[in-house]
Structures are given as structure tokens and as C-alpha cells.
């Protein structure tokens, strides 16, 4: 072993070290290059002008400032519009409620640790939740509108399916993280599946589930503002009509209303969730 002399001078044997470690670094570089190649190919394939990205924001600002300003506030204070706001809220409540109610058994099936049967129920629950999550809520809206006709029934059902996917995933994650001790204890005294769920699982997750349910409503409300755009009823329908008729100041007013309402919903749900978290 050679010591470093006091003045920092390094004696002869040169030690070798390189940040580049053959198999790992090579794979990493290959993946990096592949990703970069895909990105640049995408830019070329989609024919994207990078200058337009930078230009988009000044342009957006300009359009907002000239065409959309001033927002036609009177339009959103109109009775029929206010009724549509109320109906949007109702739709989100219904969708959120039924979505959460349906999501609980599905999440129970789709939680690996406490599912009724790993062969049948688990893949079934997983598939139901993944399926309703994978399809965007607007596509659900269009499908339901096609089958059931325009109106809030279609919007409500689309929101329900959306909430099943959204809440189901969160519920299942929460269920998979529970403490298995009580579950095993109850199983060992011979409790049925339902009894295990009620006495060992439910007490552990009640607070978390309530929080998730409120959050789901918050997200459902956000989605409810646009389902009307595709015929699902509520204020989205007004957005569609004014956009198509190029009544830009009215569009601006509706957009402002949506932003304000969503912020209020988020504040309300945040406050409620905070209170519920404290009850734990």
C-alpha cells in the first residue's frame, strides 16, 4: 500500500477506474440512445416545428387577450346556465357515488392479498378496473350517448365507469397495503370471507376509503365539466355550442366558471379530506 505523501504528490502506481462499466453502462447507453431516437423520430414523423412550441404561448396569450376578452359574465349568470351547473354537480355526485359503491367489491376482488379467489376473482376484478381506467371518460361518454341518446343518463353512466376505474385502483392499492395480522387472526377463528372483510379489513381502511371517495368526487367533477361537450349533459354542452358558434367571449366566461368551480371543488375536497385524516 502506498501512502500519499504530505504535499499531495501521487507516487507511481496508477489506479484505474472508469465510470463506464461494461454491461450495465452499455445497456443504459443503448436504451438512452433508443429513447432519443424515438423522440427525434416522433418529432420528424409528427412534423413538429419546434419554433411553434415556443410561439404557442405568446400566441395563446394574444388570442385570449384579443378575442376572448372581456368574458361575457352575464351569459354565465343566466338561469339556464346556472341550472346546467347544478346538474353538472348532480351528475358528478351520482357518478362518484355509484362509482365508489361499485369500486369497493371490485377492489376487494382485485386486491391480491385478500381476494376471494386468485384464479377467478382476481383477474376479473383487475380486468374490470383496468378496462374502465384505460378508456378515457370522453370515449365512455360518446359510447353511452350512442347507445342511450343525448342527456345526463349517458353522462352519469360515463362518470360512473370512470369513477369505478379511478377509485378501484386506489382502493385496491390501499387494500394491498393493509396489515394482514388481523385478517389471519379472524380466518383462524373460522370467520367467513364477508366477516373477515367487515371485522378485519374495513376498520383498517375506513378512513382512507372515505378520503379516496371524496377525492374521486373531486376528479369526477372535473370530468363532469366536459362530458357535456360530447352530449353527456351539463355545462359542457354550453361550451360546445358557444365554441361552434365562435362566441368567444361566452366561451371565455364558461371557461372561467369551470376553473373557479373546479378550484372550489378542490378546496372543498381538500378541506374535507384533511378533516377526515385528522379523525384517524
Amino acid at each position: 500500500m502506498t501512502a500519499i505523501s504530505a504535499d499531495g504528490h501521487m507516487p507511481a502506481p496508477v489506479r484505474r477506474w472508469s465510470r463506464y462499466k461494461h454491461p450495465r453502462s452499455t445497456i443504459r447507453f443503448a436504451v438512452l440512445i433508443a429513447v432519443l431516437a424515438f423522440l427525434s423520430w416522433s418529432i420528424a414523423f409528427l412534423n413538429i416545428d419546434l419554433y411553434r412550441i415556443i410561439g404557442a404561448f405568446p400566441r395563446l396569450w394574444e388570442i385570449l387577450a384579443t378575442r376572448y376578452f372581456p368574458p361575457d359574465i352575464d351569459y354565465v349568470l343566466d338561469d339556464s346556465f346556472l341550472h346546467s351547473v347544478l346538474r353538472t354537480i348532480e351528475m358528478s355526485l351520482l357518478g362518484g357515488f355509484f362509482g365508489v359503491v361499485l369500486a369497493i367489491p371490485l377492489a376487494w376482488m382485485a386486491a391480491r392479498n385478500i381476494t376471494i379467489s386468485r384464479r377467478i376473482a382476481y383477474p376479473l376484478g383487475r380486468f374490470a378496473i383496468m378496462g374502465s381506467r384505460s378508456i378515457h371518460e370522453t370515449i365512455w361518454t360518446i359510447l353511452f350517448v350512442t347507445v342511450l341518446g343525448f342527456g345526463m343518463l349517458a353522462g352519469t353512466l360515463a362518470l360512473t365507469v370512470f369513477c369505478v376505474g379511478f377509485a378501484g385502483k386506489l382502493f385496491a392499492d390501499e387494500l394491498e397495503a393493509i396489515d394482514m395480522g388481523p385478517v389471519e387472526a379472524l380466518r383462524s377463528v373460522g370467520a367467513s370471507n364477508l366477516q373477515v372483510f367487515q371485522y378485519a379489513v374495513l376498520p383498517q381502511i375506513r378512513v382512507a376509503f372515505t378520503g379516496i371517495a371524496i377525492y374521486t368526487w373531486d376528479v369526477a367533477f372535473r370530468a363532469a365539466t366536459v362530458v357535456g361537450f360530447f352530449g353527456g349533459g351539463g355545462m359542457g354542452w354550453y361550451l360546445k355550442r358557444t365554441t361552434q358558434q365562435l362566441e368567444n367571449t361566452r366561451v371565455a366566461a364558461i371557461l372561467l366558471t369551470i376553473i373557479v368551480l373546479v378550484l372550489l371543488a378542490e378546496l372543498a375536497s381538500g378541506w374535507l379530506r384533511h378533516r377526515i385524516a385528522k379523525m384517524r
Binding site: M1, M10, V14, W17
Partner: peptide, 26 residues
Amino acid sequence: FKVFPREDIERALELLERVGLQDHVD
């Protein structure tokens, strides 16, 4: 880019050997 000069790398290896960690460099 985490490119340190050669002397620094050599000194680091020396010091790691000196404190007995030559087998844990990476």
C-alpha cells in the same frame, strides 16, 4: 457530466485504499 480530472480520480482511489474501502468503490 460528472467528469472529474484524472488526478482527482487517482487520489480518490488512493484515499479509498488508505481507509480500507478499495473493494467498495462502486
